[in-house]
Design a protein around this nucleic acid. Structure first.
Lengths: 150, 150
DNA sequence: CTACATGCAAACCCTTTGCAGGCTG
DNA sequence: CAGCCTGCAAAGGGTTTGCATGTAG
């Protein structure tokens, strides 16, 4: 069983324990987030869920995401001037690669920031609980696009 | 002349060149951002400007900030579930230390992320243009608070 | 006189909430 | 049949815009 499947099962258990019902629509939203390295906005999730469940309303998407946020299975990522994207890829902090041209957000696996947190804790007195590391740039596809247009 | 003063002068020049007029209110907003390691929200900037210029409207603050954003002198920082904060501390990316308890945002000077950007560029094909590194934690003051309340 | 800056209020966008009805266990 | 889930519509909060009025150069 893959890591994602295990996480999904665990999540489903906890949802049930909390008295939640897992409707097909909810499952669709959840699957679109958990273990997915795309980082969709509420609107994008809505569009995709509607393919299978045309009646789905945006409110349902928001309500589902909000449950997942409470369970710390999904975090928000805000990009300057853009709406919120939701990231349920791993359930813990990890770096992102954000294309400033097409606004795509990808995950990067490596990019360990090493001993930085403990150094910072020592120097500032903060109790460090997490971090966010995002790189901004232009993705290969958009670079090609640029080249064609010039 | 300090770095901040130089940056401020340079900025003022460019604003004039672009045909902007530098009213006292605008100057107040600009000074509240450029070289200031506090990271205020629009509302907070508004409150402070109103001390000296009580008639100032929120729209003016937004319009001024928007000019600075276009000139890449100010960037937005979004904290999950919070409003936007504006950061005009250095004009280039630098790490932040965000207290999850009192929502204070501080700058950190060191914390060089080293060769990571070029590694990532090589591995992903992105043209990396910048990054954002934020640490989340609890500041010393809030830790004391916690201790007192337990 | 031209063009930018201002305050006000309305518009706007995205997100959240309230509610009545539907469905599951 | 209690309690969650749904869609709809309305409310909400923060940001942006339009407009008439100032004001600097």
């Amino acid at each position: 069983m893959s890591l994602t499947e295990r996480r999904l099962n665990n999540l489903i258990c906890r949802l049930r324990e909390d008295g939640h019902r897992l409707t097909p629509q909810r499952m669709a939203v959840i699957k679109m987030l958990i273990g997915n390295t795309e980082h969709l906005t509420a609107e994008q999730i809505h569009e995709r869920v509607k393919v299978d469940f045309p009646m789905t309303s945006l409110a349902t998407v928001y309500k589902t995401v909000s449950v997942l946020k409470e369970m710390h299975e999904v975090q928000e990522i805000s990009v300057d001037g853009e709406g919120k994207h939701f990231d349920g890829a791993t359930g813990h902090p990890h770096p992102h690669l954000i294309c400033t041209s097409c606004r795509r957000i990808e995950d990067i696996d490596f990019a360990d920031i090493g001993p930085l947190p403990s150094e910072i804790a020592e120097q500032t007195g903060y109790r460090i609980e997490g971090h966010r590391l995002d790189f901004f740039g232009v993705c290969p596809a958009c670079q090609e696009e640029e080249a064609r247009n010039s």
